[in-house]
Amino acid sequence: MTEELFQKMAQSVLDGDSDAAIVLAKQAIADGIDPLEAITKGFVAGVNQVGESFACGEAFLPELVMAGEAIKAAVSTLEPEMQKRGVHRTMLGKVVLATVEGDIHEIGKSLVGTMLAASGFQVYDLGVDVPAAKIIAKVQEVDADLVGLSALLTTTMVKQKEVIDELDKLGLRKKVKVMVGGAPVTRDWVQKIEADGYSEDAIGAVGLAKRLVGAA
């Protein structure tokens, strides 16, 4: 019975069906199933399958995003039950994400957030046009392992450096890795501002984040 439920959970993620994922998560709670098992044996199995189909060219980006949203919906449904039982998911790391000050371009950054969350990172997405001070405050508040900074304009890209310099001043650079992204970001720029890495797309960002936290 439980196996069957796990399969349905995986399928809901494969279908990118958040509504079904929520119903199944509630059923798991009602049936007294360990929420951590529901996540790892059910929903995460679905994410992994979508990831595999994507890797061999059968699934496309919208399917990854919808799978990411389905597992997010399931996990937040299971959250109260995990708290009740006093259990936590083991996450790969905590990531603070933001589009830098003066820049309103959101989609790439949000896509990276969805992919990282689906891959087992705890993501704190601060949105767009975020000043360096606010990013640093969040990093300290949540004790982040990673910061992801997005910029689409050459004139706002300089703010990525500002955040790195701030982290440096506070002596946080050894502990907090910085990854940057956005259309104008190049390898030269990454070296110049001494970021820890960059990716040209959201899939690459997941691989990079895993490497930076030593999980790959």
Binding site: F54, G57, L61, A183, D201, A202
Partner: peptide, 9 residues
């Protein structure tokens, strides 16, 4: 059209 795999321009 965005690229189906990367979402890129």
């Amino acid at each position: 059209a965005s690229d189906l795999r990367t979402g890129a321009y």
